[in-house]
Design a protein around this nucleic acid. Structure first.
Length: 489
RNA sequence: GGCCCCGUCGUCUAACGGUUAGGACGCCAGAUUUUCAAUCUGGUAACGCGGGUUCGAUUCCCGCCGGGGCUGCCA
């Protein structure tokens, strides 16, 4: 199946847009079809410079690579495919041609009404509690006058002449049977006075010409679908299938907005979320696999996804579960991969980490404990700089470690550990030695392990004492025990 | 106001006439533990309301209520 994602370059890629793109991508992959990217920049006023590049790079980050249309090639924007151009502002001649066809067949008509007149008309209608709809003033203009004004170049738009007596029905892939009465449908503007098409005309022309089989888009388009269907019919084209996905909502159940939440996908990239986590989360917002599986990679999603299991109701964009998924995906990284990914960040803060041959083991110590990579430099700092050990940290009432007890504990620790040869410096042997000392000195676990860990890390919380000592190595461990003894003395 | 869509724990959701209404996140408790996390176990918590249809409705129908989207020469 040929599916597409067709964003407007009006700013950043919205998380809702990313989810729509994901669904379209999944269907394309699942059916061994093509995923197209088209840019809908027909509103000159709202187009933002750089927005296309931003959308492209975000999709790239997510791994949703287009097979056709607009994409990044060697870092620059390119268009690939035989049905281009894929940027609507480069297709104005095409739209004009089809608009003329409708005009010639009498299926659309020119409208010369000024924005002022239209505003007043709508205000009056609202005041009378009527639905604001174009009153067809220009539909009844004498042919002669139309020709004259057209020839004169009077500003005008082209409107669709909607057959009021018709009932338009279709089967939505997600919502099932849908039905609309013609008389409730406004005579939609198809061509604006600046010559650009509106979304409605452009969507129909493009999705036909680009041979799109399935349009997946947000629910906000549901009520304009009959206009689109009508256009396909007037042109004599087979319409694509439509799937209207439910909206993403704010906590108060209104349409997800920038005011209330972080809605730019880029915000989540900056936060440090893994693409796997964001995509997994987005996929599950409004869709479920019908099994109890919670974690899905992109290929797994392509396998499991189906429009029949997409929800009809909107979903609140509550990132609590995203956070959990992020932790899960971090833990799922191979230890090597994890180490490589965090290394630059750790090196940026502690240059010594760059040449550290033990970096992978040290990184492995914290992989199960973090949610974001950015937490790691802080957690590994004690490997690369002297810990800031204080009496306040070493002594810990909760662990029954008193200032008086400390010198004795540290001394015993230093003595036994010094007996361990370098080549036997492992978690197991360390544990054995410490446990023995603990019994001999009649100490509790906390009384011996807390001071050890605190002396080695200088932190109130960290990986366990044995793990840290093993990863630190004998020389550093002994040196830190000596320093701690001085502080405790 | 009109048109259209939607309605299960706080949140994301399962169920497709018969279940102690299931799972996940969160929260709470316990286990583990030298700490903090992680992990494991358990617990808390939902069918919007009213009519039908039916032996039986969360499930089907109608009404109400509630929420949302659209109602632009924006997408």
């Amino acid at each position: 199946m040929r599916t597409r994602f067709a964003p407007s370059p009006t700013g950043f890629l919205h998380v809702g847009g990313l989810r729509t793109a994901l669904y379209a991508y999944l269907i394309a992959k699942q059916t061994k079809g093509k995923f197209l990217l088209r840019i809908e920049d027909t509103d000159q006023e709202r187009s933002v410079p750089g927005a296309v590049e931003n959308i492209l790079s975000t999709l790239h980050w997510a791994g949703l690579h287009p097979d056709e249309g607009v994409m990044m090639r060697k870092g620059i924007m390119a268009q690939e495919g035989t049905k281009g151009p894929y940027i609507q502002s480069e297709r104005t001649e095409i739209y004009k041609k089809y608009a003329d066809e409708l005009l010639a067949k009498g299926l659309a008509y020119p409208c010369f009404c000024t924005p002022e007149r239209l505003t007043k008309m709508r205000d009056d209608q609202s005041a009378r509690k009527q639905a604001p709809m174009y009153d067809r003033h220009c539909l009844s203009l004498p042919k002669k006058e139309i020709e004259q004004r057209l020839a004169k170049g009077d500003p005008h738009v082209l409107r669709l002449h909607v057959p009021h007596e018709r009932t338009i029905t279709y089967e939505d892939e997600i919502r099932g049977a849908m039905s609309f009465q013609g008389h409730t449908i406004d005579d939609q503007v198809l061509l604006k006075s600046d010559g650009f098409p509106t979304y409605h005309l452009a969507h129909v022309v493009d999705d036909h010409l680009m041979e799109i089989d399935l349009v997946i888009r947000g629910e906000e388009w549901l009520s304009s679908t009959p206009k689109h269907l009508l256009l396909f019919e007037l042109f004599g084209w087979t319409p694509p299938k439509y799937a209207h996905v439910p909206l993403l909502l704010n906590k108060d159940r209104t349409k997800l907005s920038k005011r209330q939440s972080a809605v730019a996908a880029e915000d989540y990239i900056k936060e440090g979320y893994l693409p796997e986590a964001l995509l997994n989360f987005l996929a599950l917002l409004g869709w479920n696999p019908g099994s109890e599986q919670e974690m899905f990679s992109l290929p797994e999603l392509a396998e499991a996804f189906s429009l029949e299991r997409v929800q009809k109701a909107g979903a609140i964009f509550d990132t609590e579960k995203l956070l959990w998924l992020q932790g899960q995906w971090i833990r799922r990284l191979s230890p090597q991969d994890f180490a490589e990914r965090i290394r630059p960040m750790v090196v940026a803060r502690f240059p010594d980490a760059d040449q550290d041959p033990h970096f992978p083991e040290r990184a492995a110590l914290i992989q199960g404990r973090v949610t974001f990579f950015r937490e790691t430099p802080e957690m590994l700092g004690f490997f690369y700089e002297e810990p800031k050990v204080t009496m306040g940290l070493l002594a810990n009432p909760k662990q029954k470690v008193t200032p008086e007890l400390l010198p004795k504990v540290l001394k015993a620790l230093a003595k036994t550990l010094d007996l361990l040869p370098d080549n036997k410096w492992t978690i197991d042997t360390l544990k054995e030695a410490v446990q023995k000392t603990m019994k001999k000195e009649e100490l509790g676990q906390g009384q011996i392990l807390w001071p050890l860990r605190a002396a080695l890390t200088g932190l109130p919380f960290s990986p366990g004492a044995y793990e840290v000592a093993a990863a630190l190595g004998k020389t550093a461990t002994m040196a830190r025990l000596v320093s701690a003894q001085k502080i405790a003395a």
